[in-house]
Structure formats: structure tokens, C-alpha cells
Amino acid sequence: MNKTLFTADLRAHWSLFLFIQLVLLLYGTISVYMFDPESVDALVNMLQVLPENMVKAMGFDNLSTDLTQYIAGYLYGFIMIIFPIIYIAILSNNLVAKHVERGSIVYLLTTPNSRVRIALTQALYLLITLAVLIGVLTGVVLIMCASLFPGMLDVGRFLLLNLVTFLVLAVVSGIAFFGSCAFDETRWSTALGAGLPGLMFILKMISELNEQLAWVRYLTVFTLMDSENVLAGGSFVTTAVIGTAAAALLLFAGGIALFNRRSLAV
């Protein structure tokens, strides 16, 4: 990794990071603050008025009087997917494809830093900041729960949920990063980096809207973020952790290898 480039990335993209982090913290803190087993019952009753499929599609079908399940249902069905997707799509596009399209990659490549080292630095920046986004939210939620609802949060299961969330989003990052490494033009990079994760998110919603189309959940990586299954633990979690880690590794390695080999339009 090149520390100089990493620092420049930090300076170039801190505002995007801050915006997404603040949005996640806003939702996270509000959701914890709003928790009240009695009012959750009321909220669940209110949600029953809405079409069941719509509630499912928004990921609010798992709201529970159990704090861990409540947070998982409130945050991890929708908010912890859509905002990180936005972050990943914009950032991965900026980290490689935009540099190539603008031609600014040239002065990086004409330094004694190999393409692999440059691409690896950019990949690590994406993964590390994604981990920080999730880590900071996790920490804030843990602190809030400890102070507002001591002993009510199952910390182990909550951490496991965040680990799976990070790994699923790492796969999404891998897809977007691969697209950024594969194309000289940002429109194609964006098409893959934002389009495919967006499509997978829509597939997740469709699978929850219509039981006849439930099979499409096998076409989307977000199925592995099923909070109910993750909190239940067992082989689902093991499969999700191993599968997503391997897929993310392959996608990042493939993107870096492609960037190293191909002729760049600069």
C-alpha cells in the first residue's frame, strides 16, 4: 500500500464519507432512541395496516420487542444496504475509472509505484473506509444501547450481524471496484458498479414482495444479509461469512489483475 496515495484519497473523499457516516448515524441513533418494547408493539400494529409485501420489501417485517432483533430489522433490512451502496458506487468509480478517464492516473503510473500497488491502495481505501463506516455505527449503537437499555442487546449476535453486513458490502465493493478497474469510461464503470448492486437490491425487494418470485433471492447477495437468519446463527452464518469473504477476495483480486494487465486509454 502507498501511504501518500491513501492520504490523498482521504483528502479527496472525506466529504462523501462524512455525509454517508452522518446519515447512518442519524438513522442508527434514532432507531435506538425510539426503542420501547411497548411502542414497538404499537408500531408493529400500525405496520399491519400497510400492505404486508410493502413492509417486507422495506425490511420492516422483523421489528421485534427484542432490542437486537428490533435494530436488525430497523437498520439492516434497508438503510444499511442502500446508503452503503451509494457510497461504494461513487467511491469505487472515483478511485480508479475517474482517474483513468480524466488522465490523472498518468502521474501515478509514471512514478516507481507498480499498477498493482496503486490499485491495491485504492482497494484498501474502499474496504477500510467501509469498515470504518460500519464500525463507527456499530460502536455508537453499542454505546447507546449500553446506556439507554443496559443488558438488553445481545452484543455477540449484533457484532456477527455487522460482520456479515460488512462482508456482503465487501462483495458489492468488489463488483464496483472490478467495474472501475475494467473500464476507461466512468459511465461503464458506474453502470456495473451502481447498476448491478442496484439490480440485486431490487431483486431482494421483489423476492420479498411476491412469494411466487421468492426464488430470485438466490440471484442477489443481499439475501445473505437476512437479519433473522444471521441472528439465528448456525450454518447460514458460516456459509455467508466464508462465501462472501471468498467472493470479495476474488472480485478485488480480479479487478487489480485486470488493471495491471490492460492498456489504459490515457
Binding site: 490523498a8 483528502r11 488522465g103 490523472s104 502521474y107 509514471t110 516507481p112 509505484n113
Partner: peptide, 22 residues
């Protein structure tokens, strides 16, 4: 040769250089 040390000997300015504007 992909030996990156070779790049120590080369300076390059592209047609329309783009730098971080900030």
C-alpha cells in the same frame, strides 16, 4: 520491463494534465 525503478528515469506530461483541484 515492468521493473518500476525504470520509471525513475522518465518524466511525463500528458496532453491535458488533470490534478486534484483542491
Amino acid at each position: 520491463d515492468t521493473d518500476s525503478d525504470h520509471r525513475f528515469g522518465i518524466g511525463y506530461l500528458s496532453q491535458d494534465p488533470k490534478y486534484y483541484p483542491w
